[in-house]
Design a protein around this nucleic acid. Sequence first.
DNA 1: CATGAATGAGGTTTCATTCAT
DNA 2: GATGAATGAAACCTCATTCAT
Lengths: 225, 225, 225, 225
Amino acid sequence: MLVQPAPNDAATATRLDPPALRTRDADRTQQAILRAAMREFSDKGLSGARIDSIAEAAGVNKRLIYYYFGSKEQLFIAVLEQTYADIRNAEAALHLESAAPDDAVRKLVAFTWQHYLAHPEFITLLNSENLHRARHLNQSPRILKVNSPLIQTLADVLERGRRDGLFRGGIDPLQLYISIASLAYFYLSNQHTLSAVFDRDLIKPKALSERLSHITEVVMGYVLL
Amino acid sequence: MLVQPAPNDAATATRLDPPALRTRDADRTQQAILRAAMREFSDKGLSGARIDSIAEAAGVNKRLIYYYFGSKEQLFIAVLEQTYADIRNAEAALHLESAAPDDAVRKLVAFTWQHYLAHPEFITLLNSENLHRARHLNQSPRILKVNSPLIQTLADVLERGRRDGLFRGGIDPLQLYISIASLAYFYLSNQHTLSAVFDRDLIKPKALSERLSHITEVVMGYVLL
Amino acid sequence: MLVQPAPNDAATATRLDPPALRTRDADRTQQAILRAAMREFSDKGLSGARIDSIAEAAGVNKRLIYYYFGSKEQLFIAVLEQTYADIRNAEAALHLESAAPDDAVRKLVAFTWQHYLAHPEFITLLNSENLHRARHLNQSPRILKVNSPLIQTLADVLERGRRDGLFRGGIDPLQLYISIASLAYFYLSNQHTLSAVFDRDLIKPKALSERLSHITEVVMGYVLL
Amino acid sequence: MLVQPAPNDAATATRLDPPALRTRDADRTQQAILRAAMREFSDKGLSGARIDSIAEAAGVNKRLIYYYFGSKEQLFIAVLEQTYADIRNAEAALHLESAAPDDAVRKLVAFTWQHYLAHPEFITLLNSENLHRARHLNQSPRILKVNSPLIQTLADVLERGRRDGLFRGGIDPLQLYISIASLAYFYLSNQHTLSAVFDRDLIKPKALSERLSHITEVVMGYVLL
DNA sequence: CATGAATGAGGTTTCATTCAT
DNA sequence: GATGAATGAAACCTCATTCAT
């Protein structure tokens, strides 16, 4: 059973082996598979995804997917890992700790919105994973152990804001984080049913910028005194 | 190809045909299928659901599903119709127009939360339908035409609140409605991945009541002046 | 999961339902599958057997095999059950208890030899099952519970022979039974390697009758005083 | 296509080529493959065996198996050759010709039993080969040409016993040899199904020694006057 | 001498759906 | 109104084998 976890590591660690010419192809192949899989899984869900389509899209022999990832489920896990690694890396680049409290919250809101907008696959993958009650996530120590430090950072921001007399007290940082995520995520995740039911194009540029304004106001209306 | 769209009506209208002893049975069978299908689709998603499982759970022969609903997709549509009918009926009983503006908003928040909590299948079904870009919804005039009057009601509430000097002006009722839904929906929809990643039980009673408090505060913090 | 154990029962119970016209086809189909499977499994072993070949030989759709038997392994179990049922039935018709002791033993030897000769599939199936350490047998209460009464019958025969002053005492009936089986089974089971190594045709009629004479002499030489 | 038949010879002859440092390694590698293959083939049969498992168990790259043995089938042949070579060597050390006739027969019975007991892979490999109608054996002049001289030796023993008035006359040495093998082989080969069906542990030490006593008595009961 | 990457053919199994009664 | 039998297409996965280095 040969399952190299390597590809995901590539997101966090920089590759330093210059003479690694032989592994190059393997790496590139795995990356191609992962990319194709991410697209297919996010497009069709876990049960709807087809290994054949992934192989074709990646331009590799179907057998190779099993060679590198073992099974459809393990490939799905690898995709999840990659997806979480991506958002963790992006979050880490935010540096909320160095901004003024209110700016930090606005920045977080904007970042969250932009990230979901730029990575629609994140949303559908998470929906799939929730349909499966996080069964795969709970199998991946890689994801679980890298617990996001964002909540702690946000707690610090909130505390600073409260001390500055800007923010209300008693805000649970996790609740706030989830709420920010909610306001951005749901709009995008449910855009199709919402558009259908309310007969309104929610995705045109104007609607998107209006949404960001709105959720910023909602969040700031809550945290600011 | 004999496809009776009738079964869904059964939710709103009772069939009264006098010579309908056999029709009663037919009705009961269709309801059993619908109930089983709702459970299966919400549990496994559209591609994950199995016609065999639905038939077994409903205690009917598989062939009957085709007899009454035509195909898996049409059965899914019927389930969606039923689900939307349920929430429309519940919303209609809210009577926001007769409450004080701030009470009306609080009532809407609480209702939304309670409804999602009481109908977890609503969430997973909508996620499935969004995965499919609302393809089925857009095939169902039944759902689309019964456009929710709630947005108009909410607009009236907001206008009353603004006139009373309670609410801020310029609130888009649809944005607010979506935000309220977001704050409730996302927490429940993504409970499994959130619980896994943050290692916290989000579903225990205390957590649930805290969440309702939180989202109420967020919404009221936004609308109130 | 629909696995009718019925076909095997047919060996022991006589079918009495005259109006069972509808089930006829199902029965016939299952029997056809079983027969084809027995041939394929005995010819190729469990791993060597192909579901496709079985379906083709039985003249049925491959899917039907799963419909009736669930999986390749369960089909193999059904074949084993049938095979054991066949020999049990044949043994039951021997009536050793009513023969003179020495005749009874000769009869058992001859019967064993003839049965193995007439049912070569019995030998290869048992070899397969032993390769798998009786994994399937141990899953089949049907086989295990119908413990052969032959050992008890043979014990009675041996005791009668001893009392008559014909047989030596202290013979373990199970050991003897296994030895009789050995002498017949091994010759047939290993005929191909033996023929190759000793360059002699062991299967020509003359060789077969000589073998039966030989094993009869061996067994009688042992039991007779 | 480079297929060295050498490795099997290694069992009997030691290669002594002076400049053979690399050859030593090659030899060791081939032996490792052979040992792993013997285990795998005897455990799973020919179709059940996996080249991957063999490579892993031998600790060598899969490609090497093809380099040294050409194909799965040829590897199987090599294993068979090794197995037959082992028993021929052991038989040669028996020296039945120098023992008293009755001792010689007892010795042969005991040897056969002990050899099968000590080499369970011999049994399963032969069963596999018989399933394949000795197809591989017949391709191996190496095995066929080293025809066992045991039958002739046994013939001499029987003749001596007859002349001494100890043994009955007219015993076919090949029949007797096969019978001795039968009595030992079948018990061990079919231990799993026998144990299951008769619900008795046939492999515990007491059972084993009883079996040897029994088969010795059976054989001696037959040959002795 | 040795190896990791790659493959095509084919294996078992699944599934929505239809036939015949 | 209801059902058990049957199916074709396609899904996931496996395996012996070869390529390229």
